[in-house]
Amino acid sequence: MRNLALALPCVLALACGGDFSNDDLEFQNALPQREDLAAKLPASARSGQDLGTSVQRLGAAQVLGGTSRLALQAYIAGKRFNTSVDALLALLELVRNAPPTTREADRRIWGPFPAQDHPGHELRFVMERQDTSFAYLLQFRPRGGGEGEWWTYLPGTFKAGGGIRKGTGTLALDLKAARAHGFETGGDANAVDRLDIDYQTKALPTRVELLFTDVGAATPDTRYASRRTPEGLGEMAFRLPGEDLIPGGLLETLDIVARWTPDGRGVLVLNILEGDAKGAKYTECWDAQTRVTFMARNWDFITPTEGSRATCPDVSALDVTP
């Protein structure tokens, strides 16, 4: 499973505080915060226990009554999901904590300011409003450059609906453009051209999706999606290409959906979309101690199930599609 914790430097030093008008707050409320987008993990997944490092070969490490390695992998996905979201939203926090430099009727601008981690460059943050929709850009240019020299590092949109910070939105990080302008993206981020976030918080269950486009790829090839309910039910769905899950000559593309309750009980369904054993489906449930209580394999005609399906928790509230 991919470990992509983006290295996002502190690009802007702004003085906190200052005067905010009610209209300023409307712009700022169009920016998502961590509590809006973070995946909801059970307490056992947040305890810091060793969660392992990779998806296990299908069925090889799963034993009824033993620790669910796939459940732990789902929690890993949730943690990495939150790490990527946190890194991206850190840039927006820098803007949220300072009043705009320029105010127009339906436009706010922060900056330009020196880009402290990128000598010789400056940056600005621009937001525009049209009715209940907002569009924003974090941009850079060489210091002293003209209007046409601004290039966009982080674009975003938001359409309000349902209350403060409730609605639908998008957010992206253009790492390819950053490298093209001489910026170092660092670490695993060097293997990614673009990170996109798509979210809706106006209806339950809320949903957030991360899409990673690798270097040279035309479309996103790795996806992580998180949903949650006010009662504490959580879901991680992710698509992983290039996994060697089944012995053979082909790599697998996996589609995994894991759901859990606040006390840590859960259900996971894994489908193989491409590769060796294409069409294989595996279902598993676990208890609050992450011990396997039920397994089902659609390729096993001798022992297709083990354990009791009745042990699987009720997570049907996540079946709703807003």
Rank of each mutant, 00 (worst) to 15 (best):
I109K: 01
D188L: 10
Q73K: 11
L137D: 03
D117T: 15
A77G: 08
D221W: 01
P220I: 06
N29I: 09
A160W: 06
T185I: 09
E209K: 11
E93S: 15
G264H: 04
A77I: 11
D244T: 11
V320E: 15
R165E: 10
Y153W: 14
P262M: 01
T132I: 05
R141D: 08
L12K: 12
S47G: 02
L4T: 05
R103Q: 07
A296P: 08
F140S: 00
P262T: 02
P262S: 00
E243C: 00
R96M: 03
E122R: 05
V63S: 01
R80G: 09
G307M: 03
T201H: 04
L51A: 03
V85C: 06
Q49Y: 00
G161W: 03
P114L: 15
L31H: 02
N22K: 00
T67C: 10
R259F: 03
R265S: 00
P230W: 10
P262H: 04
G78V: 01
L123H: 11
V257E: 13
D50C: 02
E243L: 09
L70W: 02
R179D: 05
D188F: 08
A280V: 02
Q139N: 00
D50T: 08
L268R: 02
L210Q: 09
Q33H: 12
R309F: 02
D276C: 13
P313S: 04
L154M: 13
I272V: 12
K176P: 15
R129S: 05
D106Y: 07
T311A: 15
L123R: 14
E149Q: 13
D36G: 11
L58K: 01
P241H: 12
I256N: 03
A43H: 05
L25A: 13
L12D: 08
D188A: 13
T201S: 00
G232T: 02
R228A: 10
E26C: 13
L171I: 09
D24C: 03
A43Y: 04
V208M: 07
D244N: 12
N298M: 02
L94G: 11
E209M: 10
Q116W: 11
L245M: 13
A310E: 15
K278Y: 07
C10Y: 09
A5S: 13
G275V: 05
L92I: 12
A191Q: 15
L123M: 10
F81P: 02
D36L: 05
A218F: 14
R46W: 03
A191M: 13
G169D: 15
E149K: 06
L25N: 14
D276A: 15
V215K: 13
P313K: 04
R291Q: 10
G264K: 08
F81V: 03
T293S: 01
T157R: 15
S21D: 09
R129M: 00
R141M: 12
K176C: 06
G161R: 07
R227W: 08
Q200R: 15
